[in-house]
Design a protein around this nucleic acid. Sequence first.
DNA 1: TATCATAACTAACATTTGTTACCAGTTAGT
DNA 2: ACTAACTGGTAACAAATGTTAGTTATGATA
Lengths: 197, 197
Amino acid sequence: MAKIRQRKNSTRKETIIETAARLFRERGFSATSMRDLAEQVGVEAASLYNHISSKAEILQELCFKVANKFMSHIDKVDAADMSAIKKIEAVLRFHIQQMVHHYEEVYVSDREWKHLTDPYLSNIQTQRRVYRQRIASIIEEGIRKNEIKKIDAPTAVLIMLHAVSGIESWHRSKEKITGEVLEENMIAILIGGLQNK
Amino acid sequence: MAKIRQRKNSTRKETIIETAARLFRERGFSATSMRDLAEQVGVEAASLYNHISSKAEILQELCFKVANKFMSHIDKVDAADMSAIKKIEAVLRFHIQQMVHHYEEVYVSDREWKHLTDPYLSNIQTQRRVYRQRIASIIEEGIRKNEIKKIDAPTAVLIMLHAVSGIESWHRSKEKITGEVLEENMIAILIGGLQNK
DNA sequence: TATCATAACTAACATTTGTTACCAGTTAGT
DNA sequence: ACTAACTGGTAACAAATGTTAGTTATGATA
């Protein structure tokens, strides 16, 4: 039938994955059927398979795209010449900005990665572990240099990363403060909580 | 067949709901089938219906049990004669302790309530909104009294509550610090981040 | 011992699920 | 104009889903 030209600079596959990200966020991966997705894309379920090879592949693409983004950012931060606390702040700001501006994909990859299957599941698990470990190392460096109060570094990481995922509530709230104000508030509380005064 | 006598002081229904809580946490509500659940309970899927009326009912029981627990706790805190920051600390400690000691049900009710259906869904949504609003009010009181730094109260609530759900990572980690140390660390960071210095 | 509620089983149901096979129209390059 | 690559549709699949019906065995009580 009609070969609908892909809108703007996004291919049909990208449209499908973006739509899937929205549905996976709203309903969860398992509770989203390929027919649900097809309906939102405006196509029959079977037609999706002209662009993607499986439902699992959609989740894989989402998860690895996000994982790569965070990994390459922390590479840059690690290489930069900053104090430990500034590095933590930079990582935190990046997380906040990603959650504000790329809500769907970041949120989904954080909440639904457990539904990946095995070569990909182990891969993501490892990446997540390594990522948290790298942040913990920066925090421990900050503790040694007396920039950061003496706390358990893994616990600090856990608080930081999960606090950020709370931006979901902000997205759903009626009267939103702006993204910038949100960021400054989060930084004030979290960096304020880490800093040695 | 065998009428397996309920173990200890828990009825068969409670056993089913506890097992369901574990599976819902591990795999999510939608990805857990009644046959999965039955297998873990050691029974055929159809037999579950002698004790519960539907899969949905299990989730309802979990969600409302937890919601009631947190609601009645904040009632007590609100009525107590404490500074605002101490009230926030009390709420936070309760959340942490619940996540440490009643992990499965608290985690599930926090993550899977979206899969409730409508009379129950609206009810829980309202309860959650009211609960967050009550915490925000305490924070605003603390700001007025200069106990708490000038931040956006809803943002502070969002950080607090989501940070706590990060205790999931602690449960899954290999070398755990104790629950008490975890609690003190979280309090140090989060209350430290709120306090006016 | 006979009775009866409880709780287990087997079989089956109607849907929904992800996915495939096959076909038809459109578009781009030769 | 011819062909090949795309991208859409229809029909169907086997498996899995939540749940019901009907039956049987257990254990407490009378």
